[in-house]
Amino acid sequence: MMPADLLTYAKPIPVSSSSTPAAGRARSSGGPPRTLAALTPGERGVVSGFSDRDRPNPISSRMMEMGLTVGATVEVAHEAPFGGALAVRCRGTLLAVRIADARVVELERASAGRAP
């Protein structure tokens, strides 16, 4: 867990409709890779990698075991009502994943889009 992540994570839930939690997350086209945390409910993407492999005891190994493997399609089904976590559909199951953890999951750049 990077200190910067911690700070973002501890931010209060935005209340105004113009700044939903998703808007606060990275949405740039260039720069760092798009992550699972950037998807809004209804959007899907394809897992391309994990950014925590060099950390000790990476969360990504458990995520992979839960089905979020490279190449798997993921869809954000819901955002937790108070924020902080996403309900992610993957391989026919719904998984609860914290947004802080979802930042570790990188998505293929061209893959994101709305679910049919």
């Binding site: 995520m63 976590a85 199951t93 609860a96």
Partner: peptide, 10 residues
């Protein structure tokens, strides 16, 4: 301690 992780099947 560091913030723990949370991944769970619904």
């Amino acid at each position: 301690g560091e913030v723990s992780t949370f991944i769970m099947e619904m």
